[in-house]
Amino acid sequence: MKNKLLLLLSASLALSACSELTTKEAPIEDRTAGIATGSATGGVAGAGMSSGSGSGVEGQGTGGAGASAGQDGVQTHGALADGVQVTPLPAQDGEGSGAGGAAGAGTGGLQGGAMSEAALAEKYAELRVPPRDAQGPLAERTILFDFDSSVIKDEYRGLIEAHALFLRSSKHAKSILQGHTDERGSRDYNLALGQRRAESVQQALVLLGVDPARIESVSLGEEKPALEGHDEAAWSQNRRVELYYQGE
């Protein structure tokens, strides 16, 4: 009974966290669209900016994450103002711990303020899989779960936002989410549990604007452990969703 309550509670918490993300992300998406048209027509500054800072970005290898509202705002501004040189802002430290704040601080920091979401979107547009040299959250592919849970922990928000941005930006990329469980209990039930974990990540990506048709959630149940052991050290690494792209 207690378990059930906890499950319901954590599920509803996860959902509310997601909806919070949605409302915060929506304006960003709108602005992304705005930037895209802005840089396409207004052109020069945007192009100059992205080529200017582009090598730096690639050198730094920051795989962009879901952009923070703050940075996005700055860059939007820069992109729209003709001929204005935009200087990347240093990473913001010690921002609030709330959902929005955490996302802003986290992704802002990882991005190093080097590349705008618009520039990333442009860079990603023709890619089917993330760049080989991607670093940061876009290079991460594994989300770990608690026992008997398909609730995505807060620490994976950056990873999910980074892949959501990639999937939104790329014209062709298709993602495969593989759910896994530890070895305990029924194999078939575990297959269904792994499926729900994958679907939980899929739902988070869809709430961030990814077309559901671009994602297939499947399960490998307990059949493909990351670690072969029979203890919690192995089990905790085996309860996971792995994110792949078609063509990998």
């Binding site: 078939d188 297959l191 269904a192 499926q195 297939e216 959630s217 499947v218 399960s219 149940g221």
Partner: peptide, 8 residues
């Protein structure tokens, strides 16, 4: 062999 998982 449908989209998603086929099992059991």
């Amino acid at each position: 062999n449908f989209r998603g998982s086929n099992s059991s």
